[in-house]
Amino acid sequence: MNSRWFWHGVYALVLLALALAIYAASRTVDYTWRWDRVPDYIVAYEDVDLRSTLTGIVEISDGQVEIIGTQDAAATETFGDLDEVLVEDGDYVFDGDVIGTRSGWRIGPLTWGLVVTLQLSILALLFAVPIGLLAGLGRVSTNPAARNLAATYVELIRGTPLLVQIFIFYFFVGTVLSLSRMTAGVAALAVFTGAYIAEIVRAGIESIPKGQMEAARSLGMSYGQAMRHVILPQAMRRTLPPMAGQLINLIKDSSLVSVIAITDLTKAGREVVNSTFSPFEVWFTVAAMYLVLTAGLSLLIRRFELRLARSDG
């Protein structure tokens, strides 16, 4: 028991030493750390200027600012809940003048980037799973056409870099089919992940003893029925851990679509670096945000696995 705590202590010490080393290294370069700039790019409480869209006369009654158009008296615009009013009753305002400010929470670009990354990953996954299942079934099929098509797809995708595939999907497929960048990005990620899922599915099916298929067929089930009711339910359980790993890979791989100007978390990070000149803080923050996403996901999946294991009997 004592020696266990000793080694936990060693672990903590090594981590601490690493942190100190990073800190010491950062002192050797001429860099001013400005962590205080980062939170604003995640979520900010700030004043927002509200501008008139009309040219007209201001009328103020119990905090409500109303603008009555001079060109057309029927055209009015009202501003309520202002924290600061910058005009007075009877003022003449032009289109685009600031009427007042309202403060509130505003979601920063990094958070938007995180949302886009999540959107990309979920959409890509929704397409990747059926693609992968189909290709995986093709891989184990006895039909040469299905088997060779699936094998070609998997080899082609696994043999080329994702970055190149994204370019091909955006510049070639996207142009031919006039896809939006988001569609092209999702398609590239789905097709890429599908190839890996296909291999996971194939391995899962092949791990089920041959006798299961024979027993099912001897009862009169068709190949499809045996797959659906006997083989796949068992294979799914075995493929859950590698499948979860693939999902986490998908989230990380989605950072590559920033090269076709999709404002995901990585692209947002680059934009924030450009406006803050604080690359160290921003990239550490971006890394941490990815980590929160992937760690949360693995936790969720582990729970799911435990529940499956319990029902396994």
């Binding site: 003893p209 027993a215 099912a216 001897s218 009862l219 006997v230 339910p233």
Partner: peptide, 30 residues
């Protein structure tokens, strides 16, 4: 094939189903 029931050396029961579901699966689905 439904006319010939088969019993295997390794039993080959479906491990993800209960005993009752093992027996009812083929009559229900086939």
């Amino acid at each position: 094939r439904q006319k010939a029931g088969m019993v295997f050396q390794q039993f080959n029961l479906f491990p993800h189903l209960t005993v009752l579901d093992n027996i009812t699966l083929a009559p229900l689905k086939v």
